[in-house]
Design a protein around this nucleic acid. Structure first.
Lengths: 215, 215
DNA sequence: ACGCTATGACTGACTGGTCAGTCATTAATA
DNA sequence: TATTAATGACTGACCAGTCAGTCATAGCGT
């Protein structure tokens, strides 16, 4: 019927040795499409089209839709938490400063990037795909909570906090970040939310609420 | 081929005058199936089977899948917030007691019921179904935030709170409830979470963090 | 009282459309 | 020419929504 364009960037050019570039293109395209549609509703035809590749090509590099999504998560999510883990031991300032730094990090590295959408996707699709929540628990959540517990213990040890509530409920620290993620996805068009200010207000309340009476 | 059972509770018995009972059966079945599968993945065939009704019958009572889900939400979600709105004006105690009461209510009426799953469903499906987030914003979120702002203003007026942070960021109060919802759906099998204790710990921190220095 | 017919609630096979994954074919490289 | 990456038409499964037909009941006429 019609001649397909034969010289598109990736298509059919430099056939050997481009395996890596093609895999990259597929992963990038998959990120876009999964974020826009969710895991279940994302269409592999769309991903292929956006990557400038035929659908069959995807199956040369990834077993199936699920493995493609896992590969995506692994490379997007792993590095961040590892960086944060490295940050903590060397920090010398007050717990208040430390928590504000973490809040700033949450805002800059998650809420202001595509990672917030990935986080939302995990929240949305996790319940129906147990491998997803299991992956996220292992790679991120358990490690994140350990960091927060360490911060709480450090604050108590330094005599800054009177309460061990942060060790018992480390979930309290990231709570407003989750609210911000959900807010951005559902209600931002009705009422804008200053996420950075929200996180800082929360940290202030936390520090003041957990602090010893004196000072 | 085979005789369908002719005397099942609803089917073919009391053909006239059972409209209400059938609608109830469909709504109950729809709740179960939507919670189990999510909005997009729920199958009307399943809902019909569970309601003991033919698929076509659903369309006698509801225009389509979307309107069925809306009807469900309306009856499950509306009454609660209305009840809470009625509670506030008559409350005479301290803000701490008021907030603990609200926390208890969140736990008992949402986290301990199916409503938590409905809330999760709205978080999960809202971004891809704007009518959903619009509905929830109008019926619940905007009204809930107004209540919280009123509580914050009352606390400042009574001289209990030094800060107006709760009025500026009312989202901070329900934040741990959302965490609990997400936790229950994704991570409970790895690490149980005492939601009631979490909410109480949060309220304590909030009250202490916002309070005036004296007392 | 009793049969008979009109009504409309209810049914479920069917349609049209969607999409993950396959595989016979094509064509670029060595 | 032989090898193998890449392609995309195709298959089989799925499902929302439709509609021609069924049948329990109401109520009319006798």
């Amino acid at each position: 019927m019609e001649r397909r364009p034969r010289e598109t960037s990736l298509r059919s050019r430099g056939r050997r040795g481009n395996a890596e570039a093609r895999q990259r293109a597929v992963l990038d395209a998959a990120l876009e499409v999964f974020l826009a549609k969710g895991f279940a509703a994302a269409r592999l035809d769309d991903i292929a089209a956006r990557a400038g590749v035929a659908k069959g090509t995807i199956y040369l590099y990834f077993r199936d839709k699920e493995h493609l999504f896992q590969a995506l998560l692994r490379e997007a999510v792993g590095p961040v938490i590892t960086r944060v883990e490295g940050l903590l031991p060397s920090f010398a300032g007050s717990t208040g400063d430390l928590l504000h730094m973490i809040a700033e990090l949450m805002d800059r590295e998650i809420l202001q990037t595509r990672r917030k959408d990935l986080l939302r996707l995990i929240i949305a699709e996790g319940p129906r795909f147990p491998w997803l929540s299991e992956f996220y628990w292992r790679e991120v959540v358990s490690r994140g909570l350990a960091i927060i517990r360490a911060v709480g213990a450090r604050a108590v040890a330094r005599g800054e906090f009177a309460s061990d509530a942060l060790e018992r409920f480390p979930q309290l620290l990231p709570a407003p970040m989750l609210v911000a993620v959900i807010w951005g996805a559902l209600f931002d068009r009705f009422d804008k939310l200053d996420t950075r200010a929200l996180l800082d207000a929360h940290v202030d309340i936390l520090v003041r609420g957990l602090a010893r009476r004196d000072s």
